[in-house]
Computed example of a mutant assay.
Amino acid sequence: MTYLVQTNRLTKVYEGKEVISEVSMHVKKGEIYGFLGPNGAGKTTIMKMMTNLIKPTSGSIEIFGETLTHNSYDVLKRMGTIIEYPVFYENLTAKEILDLHCEYMGYYDKKEIDHVLDLVKLINTDGKPVKDFSLGMKQRLGIARAIITKPELLILDEPINGLDPIGIKEIRELFKMLCEEYGITIIISSHILGEIEQIADTIGIIHNGKLINELSIDNVNLNQTDYIEIIVDDGKKAAFILEKNLAITNFKLMDDDHCIRIYDSAVSQKVISKALIEQDIDIEAINRKTSSLEDYFLKLVNGGIMNA
C-alpha cells in the first residue's frame, strides 16, 4: 500500500492541554480523504502541522515518503493548501493574486491563470478588486490559488464554506476531476457530512483530538442499514405499543421523543401504522430509510464503536 501522507502518533499540547492525541492517519496516493469532525475537534490543528505552520509536540508526519522537518521546503512546493479562511491582498484582482502566487512559487506557466479562473467560475472578474468579492468568490479564489501550480497534494480546510448549493456542486465536481484526471491526492476537512459522503474514498473521523476511526467509504456503505422512521405525537406511548402489541424490540426512541426508528425489517409499515392508529397515536410521517454517513458519524462520536 502506497501512502502519500502518514502521521504517526501525532500529538500537540497547548498550555499543558493535549489538543491532538496520538493521531495516526493514512492517506493513499490518488484518493480523496475526507477528514470529518465537529468544529473544535482538531482538524485545522492537524492540517497546520502537515503544512509546517505549527510544530508537533511529539509524533511525526511523513509526506511523499519524507519525514516533515523544519527544512522541508521542497515538500511544501509540491502541495496546495487552504488553511482556515484564505487571505489576500484585497486591492489586487484575482489575476494579480494568482500571478503573484505563481511568482513566489517559482511557477511560470502564466497561461494557467485564465484556465484555473475558468475552472472555479471566476473568469469574468477582470478589474474587480478582491475586496469587492463575496465570501463565496473569495473561497473560489482560494481554491484557484491552491491548485494553479498543479500540486501533487491538496490540503483543504473547510473549502466549501461560504458557497451556495450550486457552488458546492461545482467545486465537488472540480475536486473529483482533479483527483481522477490529474491524479492529485486531496485531504479535505469538513463538518458537512453529506458532501464528504459524495466525494471521499476514505474518511477519518476525529473527535476531541483523537482519530476514532479511519475506513473506506465502501465500508461505511456496507454498515448502512434499512429502518422505518415514524414521527408521532407521543413517542413514549408509541414505543410501549410497539413492544407490547407487536413484540418489536429492535427500535430506538430518538432524543426528541417524537421520532422512532424501527430496525426490524420483517414488520411492514402498514401493520405498524394500524397498531398505532388503533391506540389513538397521531402519525405525522412514516418512511423507510437507509442509515447515512451522518448516522454512522453520530454513532461514533456519541460513544459507539471506537476503533482507532
Rank of each mutant, 00 (worst) to 15 (best):
I260Q: 02
P129H: 06
A94N: 03
K252V: 07
D114H: 14
F251M: 05
H191G: 09
F175G: 01
R9E: 13
G204V: 00
D132E: 13
K138P: 01
M177Q: 11
N287T: 15
M254G: 08
T290M: 09
M49C: 12
S268G: 15
L122I: 11
N219F: 05
L153A: 04
I186M: 02
I286A: 13
M47L: 15
T11R: 07
I155M: 06
I203K: 02
G40K: 05
L135I: 11
I192C: 08
I61L: 01
G136N: 03
L76Y: 08
M79C: 08
S189M: 03
I217C: 07
K289G: 12
M254P: 06
I46R: 00
M49P: 05
E181L: 14
V232L: 02
N221A: 13
V23D: 03
L246Q: 00
M1R: 12
D132P: 02
L298V: 11
H26I: 06
I148M: 09
K121W: 10
K274Y: 13
A285Y: 13
N307I: 14
K128T: 10
I286P: 06
I32K: 00
M50D: 02
G204H: 01
D109M: 08
E90D: 15
K176F: 10
T290P: 01
A239T: 12
L293V: 13
Y108V: 08
G30P: 10
S134A: 07
A41Q: 09
D257C: 08
A247L: 15
G127F: 08
I305H: 14
G127M: 11
G235Q: 05
V301P: 02
L193D: 07
Y3C: 07
K150Y: 03
T51K: 06
Y104E: 07
F251P: 01
E180L: 07
E195P: 01
L135T: 10
T290K: 11
S72C: 07
K77Y: 09
T202I: 12
N307K: 12
N221G: 08
D282W: 12
T81V: 15
